[in-house]
Simulated scan of single mutants.
Amino acid sequence: MDRAAETAGCKSRSEYLEKAALFYAGYVSGQEATAYLPPALASVLRGTVQDTENRICRLLFKLAVELDMVMNVLAAGMEISDDALRSLRGRCVQNVKKTSGSVTLDKAVEYQRGGV
């Protein structure tokens, strides 16, 4: 216990026991788990999450560029009224909500051909 207390930077056994009890209580309750993870592991987890976030952001940017290109190509070749565009936007918002974003070209073509 003396060696562990020294390693933990405690000045006494009672201080070490207090820290140990607080650590264990936090571990058992599961609150603020990062306080009980080894710093190296917490750092690796933060880095992994940051890398994933950066990758998703880059992919979303590329997707937005492609979508913008498609919309501009369609807008150049189609004549659609403002009312029809507003109506389509509302229908698309509802469709995306209803399908949780799982929208396919097949379903859009079916709808445009008069299907539901």
Rank of each mutant, 00 (worst) to 15 (best):
T48Y: 14
A35G: 03
A75I: 09
T34S: 09
E6T: 05
V28E: 05
T52E: 07
E66P: 04
A21K: 08
V28H: 01
Y36P: 02
D2K: 02
K19M: 09
D83W: 02
F23E: 06
Q94C: 07
L88A: 14
A5I: 10
L37G: 09
A20K: 11
A21S: 14
L41Q: 08
V65G: 12
Y27L: 02
L105R: 09
S87K: 01
D82F: 01
D68Q: 11
R86P: 03
E32R: 15
R58I: 11
M78K: 08
R55F: 02
R13C: 13
K98L: 04
E32W: 07
Y111C: 03
E32K: 10
P39F: 04
K11S: 13
K97H: 11
S102Y: 00
R89Y: 00
S102L: 04
V70L: 14
S12M: 07
V73F: 00
M1Y: 12
N72I: 07
V93I: 08
A20C: 05
G101A: 11
G114F: 15
L63E: 04
E15T: 15
Q31I: 06
A5Y: 15
A108R: 09
L63R: 15
L22W: 06
A5H: 14
M71T: 10
V28G: 04
L17F: 13
V93E: 02
M78I: 03
V96Q: 08
A33N: 10
R58K: 13
L105P: 00
A42Q: 14
C92W: 00
V103P: 03
D2I: 06
V103G: 04
A64E: 01
D82L: 06
A5T: 05
R46S: 06
E66A: 15
L74H: 13
L41F: 08
V49Y: 06
N54K: 07
L59I: 07
V49R: 09
C57M: 10
A75S: 13
V103F: 00
D68P: 00
M1C: 10
A4T: 11
G77R: 10
T104M: 09
P38D: 14
A84I: 04
M71P: 03
Q50M: 10
C92Q: 10
Y111K: 00
N54D: 11
R13T: 01
A20R: 08
A33I: 05
T34V: 12
Y36M: 02
R55I: 08
A64F: 06
V116P: 15
